[in-house]
């Protein structure tokens, strides 16, 4: 099947075609730029909610419950769940679907698991493009579950409109939240596993940390968003409708204040910069590195015959590149 035939099926609402388009984008297949160009043109600004937090916090369970909550209204939803690729073998076990069993019966929900494939920011490097595919397909709401390795995962901030940070009352978590910079990225905090001891105290602690941050913020006349804390017991569906209402409030707030638009434009700017960087890198590799044996040069540097800077000047024809710009008032 050509990619045009595939796209025709995709725009006819064929789920198999959606899955194949996602693979094509994820694998950076030869045709992916052309396909993505088309997908970008069909985007309708689906709302994107990111769910992040340490391993086992209950991210998948919460995603499952939110989706369940909205499924019956017929909301078109996409779910993207990211798990880590083993740096040693390149393989991965993607297990988030275990918690999303009951969603299979809804045709308005599409779930896709992604491996990070070497990316370290909490999402795979193709995740944002996969969100574009889901959007172009007609999804209105996309839930994105990050890897959750514990450290701050900044990709989710760039990729999503509302970032939900999930924590659990386990000792040390609130201090850790501060250390890891989770306070800065959270639009909504969830204290999940509220059935466990210490949940209330944990939430109060977190609240006071948030208040300190609030008081330290420069005074401004513009309304700003106060990060709320929601307590949940995800497997029992407790607190989930509260959580969804809070997410909707944040959505309404950022749309009303123009933050949504600014943020989306920033995302697009990042995408454009990334396209330019990729193109320049590829061009430069072709121009300067074809026919050059870097291993050989590295041996030379190791043996002390040359330093790496002089080696680049000597072997990589950089002068030709500089000549292009000569005389230009850059």
């Amino acid at each position: 099947m050509t990619s045009d035939e595939l796209l025709d099926r995709f725009f006819n609402g064929d789920m198999v075609a959606l899955a194949k388009v996602i693979s094509l984008v994820e694998n950076r297949s030869p045709d992916h730029e052309r396909v993505l160009a088309r997908l970008f043109r069909e985007c309708r600004n689906a709302y994107r909610v990111g769910i992040t937090g340490p391993p086992g916090a209950g991210k998948s369970t919460v995603v499952d419950k939110i989706a369940m909550h909205l499924a019956e209204d017929g909301t078109e939803m996409g779910i993207v769940a990211v798990d880590p690729t083993s740096p040693f073998t390149g393989g991965a076990v993607l297990g988030d679907r275990i918690r999303m069993k009951d969603l299979y019966k809804y045709d308005n929900i599409f779930i896709r698991s992604m491996a990070t494939r070497g990316s370290l920011g909490g999402l795979a490097s193709a995740t944002k493009d996969v969100l574009v595919a889901l959007d172009a397909y007609g999804k209105e709401l996309i839930l994105v579950e990050t890897v959750g390795v514990g450290q701050v995962e900044l990709d989710v901030v760039d990729a999503c409109d509302t970032v939900v940070v999930m924590l659990t009352p386990e000792a040390g978590d609130s201090v850790q939240a501060m250390k890891a910079g989770l306070l800065e990225i959270a639009d909504v905090f969830v204290v999940n596993k509220a059935d466990r001891d210490g949940a209330e105290i944990f939430a109060i602690e977190l609240q006071s940390i948030l208040e300190i941050k609030e008081n330290n913020m420069p005074k401004s006349s513009k309304p700003h968003w106060k990060t709320p804390i929601v307590l949940t017991v995800a497997p029992e569906d407790r607190g989930i409708s509260d959580l969804w209402n809070t997410i909707e409030k944040h959505r309404d707030f950022i749309i009303r204040e123009g933050i949504f638009e600014t943020h989306r434009k920033l995302q697009i700017k990042h995408k454009i910069e990334q396209i330019i960087e990729n193109k320049i890198r590829l061009l430069a590799q072709r121009k300067f590195l074809t026919g050059i044996d870097i291993d050989h040069i590295a041996s030379g540097v190791y043996e002390g015959q040359i330093d790496p800077y002089s080696a680049v000047n000597k072997y990589c024809r950089l002068k030709e590149f500089e000549n292009i710009f000569e005389g230009d008032q850059l």
Binding site: M15, G91, R97, K101, Y104
Partner: peptide, 29 residues
């Protein structure tokens, strides 16, 4: 073992009905 051999494995867990298996297989391509 399949992960260690370099494959991406989507593990969907216990009690999977044919409907669940097929839908997951298609969505995950």
């Amino acid at each position: 073992a399949l992960r260690d051999a370099g494959f991406e494995v989507i593990y969907t867990g216990l009690h999977q009905s044919p409907g669940m298996i097929v839908k997951a297989a298609i969505q995950e391509d």
